[in-house]
Design a protein around this nucleic acid. Sequence first.
DNA 1: GCCAACGTTGGC
DNA 2: GCCAACGTTGGC
Length: 145
Amino acid sequence: MARGRSHWLVKSEPDAFSWDQQVANGVEPWTGVRNHMAKANLQAMKKGDLAFFYHSNIGKEIVGVVEVVREAYPDPTVGPDDPKGEWVCVDVKAVGPMPQPVTLAAIKADPAFTELALVRQSRLSVMPVSAEHWRKLCRMGGWKE
DNA sequence: GCCAACGTTGGC
DNA sequence: GCCAACGTTGGC
């Protein structure tokens, strides 16, 4: 793994924005985050970091990998009442699909993941993934790093 | 469709 | 500053 590179997991409801759309668009601004913990995670992302793309609600599985191509900047989708710069977004690029999507059920079934934020804080939409968890999830999904 | 978790809002 | 009410997210 490259020096200091961090790993993440981002969630999207496929009804709102799906992996297929991410692939079709290539680079896409990751907007709409309105939670302070998730915002702090967005701000900690560095260019070149990788993130799992997770489908919430429908599918409930990791379906692909994206790369951060632009670090945090003001979210242009804020409402007129929100102060400018209150919320941020990053740009992410589709890297590739998980050969074998990793389901939430499979993750929950493995005691190694009890500390994973996806399990512990089910409502958090942008979260860090430890190097160990990243490696293991890649292995489960057939992803070649 | 229901409910638990949790963040936000508003009355006091 | 506390806490009940309410809204949203997301798993089941």
